[in-house]
Simulated scan of single mutants.
Amino acid sequence: MERNRLTFKLKRELTRSAPDLWDGIAAGVAALVAETLLRELDAVPSADGKLFAELKDASMTEAFKRNRGA
């Protein structure tokens, strides 16, 4: 929670003091996040990870729908 509060405080301060720089900062952060996610998705998802759980839930929901309609 503290991390989020500090992040928003930093964003507010940067936006106020250097509004012309914020778009570049946001784009740089977005690129880093996208790069990290793509690197993680390049491998088989960890069974302990959120992505694996979401994929499993989605496939179970689809299987339930198919079986229910049969």
Rank of each mutant, 00 (worst) to 15 (best):
A63C: 03
I25D: 01
A43S: 11
V44L: 14
K50V: 14
R39A: 13
F8D: 11
L6W: 08
D23H: 07
A31R: 08
A53Q: 12
F52V: 01
K56C: 03
L6H: 12
E13N: 07
A27F: 02
L55K: 04
R3A: 14
A31Q: 11
E62A: 15
L10D: 10
D42N: 12
F64T: 10
A70Y: 09
A53L: 09
E2N: 09
A18T: 02
K11P: 01
V33P: 00
I25E: 06
A27N: 09
A18P: 00
R68M: 05
A27E: 15
T61R: 14
A63K: 11
L14V: 06
T36G: 02
L51W: 06
R39W: 06
R12G: 09
A18C: 09
E62F: 15
L6D: 14
A47L: 14
A70G: 01
L37M: 11
S59W: 08
E2I: 06
N4V: 02
T61C: 01
A63T: 09
K50R: 13
S17D: 11
K11H: 06
A26R: 10
L14P: 01
D48H: 03
L10F: 08
R12E: 15
R3D: 13
N4P: 00
L38A: 06
L55R: 06
I25M: 04
S17A: 08
V44R: 13
